[in-house]
Every structure is written in structure tokens, then in C-alpha cells.
Computed example of a mutant assay.
Amino acid sequence: MAGEPQADCLFCKIVAGQIPATVVRETETTVAFRDINPQAPTHVLVIPKVHYPDAASLAAAEPGVASDILIEAGRVALDEKIVEHGYRVVFNTGSGAGQTVFHAHAHVLGGRGLQWPPG
């Protein structure tokens, strides 16, 4: 069922505390933790505690939680001191776009120049 934890989902296991993560922020609806394969000096993932396979399905079903992810992305950027020089918030959707964990999540990237387009 949409929104319910999935037994085979890495991020659902992080939310449940079954898999360790370097958590930098947590709210009632989100968890933010450091990416294990960082693509920038600051690379933090912000995930909803509820399970949806991608950002679009989360936003359609629970727009308030989708908003919470963006709010937390901004707070992560403040905490990590990357606001002044700029940062990027990325939602990958589908394997062709680089999504490897099918649980909605935002990447907060910063701490170096981030040219556009990203590749």
C-alpha cells in the first residue's frame, strides 16, 4: 500500500532504525542523512518517513510531506553553511535519471561549483 513501509526498501529500513545512517536532521515527517557515495563536499539526502517510489507520487498523495522535504533541504543547506555560495536540490525519477533507491528523496548538494547542465 502506498505510504506504508516496504520490507525490501533501504530507506524504509533507515527510517525504522534497522540500517545505520549519519543522520543530520530529523522531523516528524522526514529524515536527512549523509549520502554514502557523496558527489559533492556536502551531499545529504532528505527522505520522507512514508514510502512513495518517487517525488511525483509523493507530491500527488501527500503534498504536505513533499513540502516538508523542501523545507528540510533548505534547513540542511543552512546547517551545512552552503547557502551563501549556492546549492542544488535534486530529485531523480527513474533508473534512466540515476534513481537507485525507489523511495522518494531529495539530494542536497553543495560546497563546490555546480555547473549546469549537470551531465
Rank of each mutant, 00 (worst) to 15 (best):
A2N: 09
Q6I: 13
K13N: 13
I14C: 03
G17V: 02
I19G: 00
A21M: 06
A21S: 14
A21G: 03
R25S: 12
E26Y: 00
T29G: 05
T29K: 10
V31A: 00
D35C: 08
I36L: 15
A40I: 07
P41K: 09
T42D: 02
T42C: 13
H43N: 05
V44Q: 07
L45E: 08
V46E: 05
I47A: 00
P48N: 09
K49G: 00
S57F: 00
L58D: 00
A59G: 00
E62T: 13
P63Y: 08
G64L: 03
G64F: 01
V65C: 04
A66E: 03
S67D: 00
S67C: 08
S67P: 06
S67Y: 01
I69D: 00
L70N: 13
L70M: 15
V76Y: 05
L78G: 05
D79Y: 05
I82C: 05
I82W: 00
I82G: 04
E84M: 09
H85T: 14
H85K: 15
R88F: 05
F91M: 10
F91I: 09
G94H: 11
G94W: 07
G94S: 06
G98E: 11
G98L: 01
G98P: 12
Q99W: 08
T100Y: 05
F102P: 03
F102T: 10
H103A: 09
H107I: 12
L109R: 11
G110L: 02
Q115V: 15
Q115Y: 14
W116P: 07
P118M: 14
G119I: 11
